[in-house]
Simulated scan of single mutants.
Amino acid sequence: MNIESILHYINLYGYAVIFVCLFFGIVGIPAPEESLLFLIGVLCGRHKLSFEYGLAASILGVFTGMLSAYACGKYLGYPFIKKFGKYVGITDERWQKAVRFYSKNVQKTILFGFYLPGLRQISPYFAGITQISFRKFGLLSLLGTLAWTIPVMSAGFFAGKVFSINPAYIPCAGIISFLLFLSFVWLRNKRRARLTS
């Protein structure tokens, strides 16, 4: 999809397109959320979109998606996830991985889980199923939403001002960033294991 197509949809439907894409990405329908946030930032940097409106639509889409997934987890529970999760990318393997990761430190998982694709989709369901209080979840989700959307969009904004970026390569940038993050986590865990042994 090129910039003209994206701008065409935004011109037709407004910034609601950004809201809807990020909402469904968080609820669990596969979507390249980081790439979209970065691209929105690039378009803002080129003065094709308003940074304020783009950021507001992004934050509302992500935060509303988190609250909706939490409500599904709380009121529909694990049987619903088990039955329908496979249709939105929540496999048993991802679920068990999230349970282990989540159990170690609930607050950090909600707050920083946005940076891990898969975990950010499973985390709100799990918080609802495990009956984390709504106030606590809402506050941590809001802080996590801000800590994820603002830096990613800002990076796109400044990159869009400085460089001529072809939107076709933006998903590659998202993959590279994710691989760098995984490498960092792996190296940190390896170093910790070496220090404890």
Rank of each mutant, 00 (worst) to 15 (best):
T145V: 09
L140S: 03
K104M: 02
F137Q: 08
D92R: 12
K83A: 06
T149A: 13
G118H: 00
K97S: 13
G113Y: 10
F137E: 07
P79F: 05
Y78I: 13
G128F: 00
R94S: 13
I110A: 03
R94A: 15
A147W: 12
T109G: 10
F137W: 12
K136I: 14
I110M: 09
Q121I: 04
Y102Q: 08
I81A: 03
Y78H: 14
I122C: 07
R120Q: 14
F126V: 15
I122P: 00
G138Y: 05
G89C: 02
K104G: 10
A147D: 10
N105S: 05
I90H: 02
R94L: 15
Q131S: 12
V88W: 06
D92L: 13
I129V: 05
G144S: 15
K104D: 08
V88Y: 06
V152Q: 07
Y102L: 03
R100E: 09
G138K: 07
S154K: 12
L146M: 15
A98M: 08
Q131G: 07
V152K: 12
A155N: 07
S141I: 05
F134T: 12
K82W: 12
I132C: 01
A127M: 00
K97A: 13
P124N: 08
Y87I: 01
G77C: 11
E93A: 06
F112A: 07
L76A: 12
G128E: 01
G128P: 02
Q131T: 09
K83L: 07
K136G: 09
E93N: 08
Y125H: 03
K83C: 04
K104S: 05
G138W: 05
T91Q: 10
N105V: 00
L116W: 11
W95I: 07
G138M: 11
P117K: 01
P117Q: 03
N105P: 01
I81T: 04
Q107L: 13
G138N: 09
S141V: 03
R135F: 08
Q107K: 13
D92E: 14
N105E: 06
G85T: 05
P151D: 13
A147G: 13
G156L: 12
F126Q: 14
A155C: 11
P151Q: 14
F101H: 08
R135D: 10
A98R: 01
L143M: 13
P117R: 02
Y87Q: 02
Q121K: 04
L76C: 10
K83N: 10
A147R: 11
K104H: 09
V106E: 05
K97C: 09
T130R: 06
L146T: 14
